[in-house]
């Protein structure tokens, strides 16, 4: 229901900032992520940063690329 894209905060001016989304510069309000810092990755929706992605979260994103059979926490009795 809601498109949101990740990007890096590269400029900040009070409640607004500029976010780099894969080479595009997007104006975003920072009202709901007041603690965001330059260089942080944020998720942008309708001109608003709605969350800050932490380094741990970025690492977790990379984990997605691992083999799912090893990464899965819930291997139930169905697994061969």
């Amino acid at each position: 229901m809601c498109l949101a894209v990740p990007g890096k905060l590269i400029e900040r001016d009070g409640h607004s900032g500029t976010v780099d989304v894969r080479g595009n510069r997007v104006q975003a309000r920072l009202d709901v992520v007041p603690d965001v810092r330059l260089g942080d990755y944020v998720l942008v929706h309708a001109g608003f940063a709605i969350s800050v992605l932490s380094d741990d979260e970025a690492a977790e994103a990379l984990d997605l690329l691992d083999d799912p059979d090893e990464a899965m926490p819930h291997d139930g009795p169905l697994m061969p």
């Binding site: 498109l3 894209v5 990007g7 989304v21 894969r22 080479g23 595009n24 997007v26 942008v44």
Partner: peptide
């Protein structure tokens, strides 16, 4: 291009 893909994601 990377930036075109990014802009398409941004604008849906």
């Amino acid at each position: 291009r990377e930036a075109v893909a990014g802009a398409c994601d941004l604008l849906g």
